[in-house]
């Protein structure tokens, strides 16, 4: 899964990059439906098919952010519709915790979103991608993009943080 994401050739300079974990049974089929129905949505998303959203560990979301993703979408079956009965319960609980930890670490928690998209909801899929891309654009490029961070406004803040630490230590 990791190498799949890493090897992706999608390059969108100066625009946000979004990694989407899509569950095999609902959201991936929903994305498929959006595709065959020729619905328009932004091309900033790289989809990764997983068997269930419960297989998406918070580790993977963090890793995606570490590698410079500006947003991470997790999409799965509606509560009660999980192919594995209660897999998405686990996802939901982990998501709630992860979001708060990201907030505390200073990473905009809006960069990570959990959505329930069924196989019949092609239109919802397109809409979610549209609104999420817009939201991530608002949040801006991720401060964890190593190459760009030095030049940005955030780079200054980081330098200040380093300086103040040296005084303390």
């Amino acid at each position: 899964m990791m190498s799949e994401a890493r090897g992706s050739s999608v390059k969108i300079p100066d625009d946000v990059r979004i990694v989407a974990f899509l569950c095999n049974w609902c959201s991936y089929a929903g994305a498929d439906l959006a595709g065959v129905s020729r619905m328009q949505y932004p091309p900033n998303v790289v989809g990764i098919r997983v068997m269930c959203t419960a297989t998406v560990s918070p580790y993977h979301v963090l890793k995606a952010l570490q590698m410079g993703a500006d947003g991470v979408l997790i999409a799965g079956c509606h509560i009660g519709d999980c192919h594995y009965l209660k897999g998405n319960y686990m996802t939901y609980k982990r998501y709630l915790i992860l979001r708060e930890i990201l907030r505390f670490a200073g990473i905009n928690e809006k960069r990570v979103r959990l959505e329930w998209i069924s196989a019949a909801e092609g239109e919802k899929f397109a809409e979610v991608i549209r609104s999420f891309t817009e939201e991530v654009r608002e949040a801006g490029l991720s401060p964890l993009r190593k190459n760009e961070v030095i030049k940005s406004e955030f780079g200054e803040k980081l330098k200040n943080a380093f300086r103040s630490l040296e005084v303390v230590k």
Binding site: R103, A105, G106, P143, F154, K157, N160, A161, F162, L165
Partner: peptide, 20 residues
């Protein structure tokens, strides 16, 4: 004290800490 920082400052604080 960490919670009272602004979002970006908080990230800068943690990154500077983690970098050591």
């Amino acid at each position: 004290a960490v919670e009272s920082m602004e979002g970006d400052e908080r990230l800068a604080y943690w990154l500077a800490q983690f970098a050591s």
